[in-house]
């Protein structure tokens, strides 16, 4: 029957070598763990870096590693790499919308900051004043016992 044929057509694709894919999973696991460790190391390192440019650079590297991790998860764990090319395209291409989404939002966020600093000098002055004790937000006041976290 036509549909039986169809059914096989959809499923045969998955009849794969289990051992090979288990190896692939293990390889990807190792890669993900290593990347995470590198990220953590960089995160630690950030605490001891003062140069603004260098900090940004490290943060940039962390973001690139983040994208690499995302790639491995989507491509191997979610199996996208083994789907038909057209399907990959229908998923990857719309994600490109995030580029302009991100750029426009962040650019405008930054601009908002600059405009506010320019036209609201009081705000700027306030935001540069060092605080003595932990600040409380808008909500109910809690007796925040400092566990050495804010020093």
């Amino acid at each position: 029957m036509d549909n039986l044929h169809e059914l096989q057509e959809v499923t045969h694709h998955h009849e794969f070598d289990r051992e090979a894919s288990r190896k692939e999973v293990m390889r990807v696991t190792v890669i993900l763990s290593v990347i995470t460790l590198i990220e953590l190391a960089l995160g630690f390192w950030l605490m001891y870096i003062d140069g603004e440019f260098f900090r940004l650079l490290i943060k940039g590297v962390i973001c690139v590693l983040m994208l690499a991790k995302a790639f491995y998860i989507v491509a191997y764990f979610m199996h996208l790499k083994h789907e038909l090319r057209n399907m990959i395209m229908t998923i990857v291409v719309p994600l490109l919308l995030f580029v302009w989404f991100l750029v426009a939002f962040l650019y405008d966020g930054n601009s908002y900051k600059n405009l506010k600093n320019t036209y609201d000098p009081y705000h700027y002055e306030q935001s540069k004043t060092k605080a003595e004790k932990p600040a409380h937000g808008a909500g109910e006041t809690k007796d925040a016992k400092k566990e050495g976290s804010v020093e």
Binding site: L97, W100, A104, D108, S111, Y112, L115
Partner: peptide
């Protein structure tokens, strides 16, 4: 459709340069 949304915000405080891209 996904690239032009901020043309609804030209005069609400949007960065003017960004506005020109929109």
């Amino acid at each position: 459709a996904f690239l032009v949304w901020a043309h609804h915000m030209f005069v609400t405080g949007l960065n003017p340069f960004l506005g020109s891209v929109f």
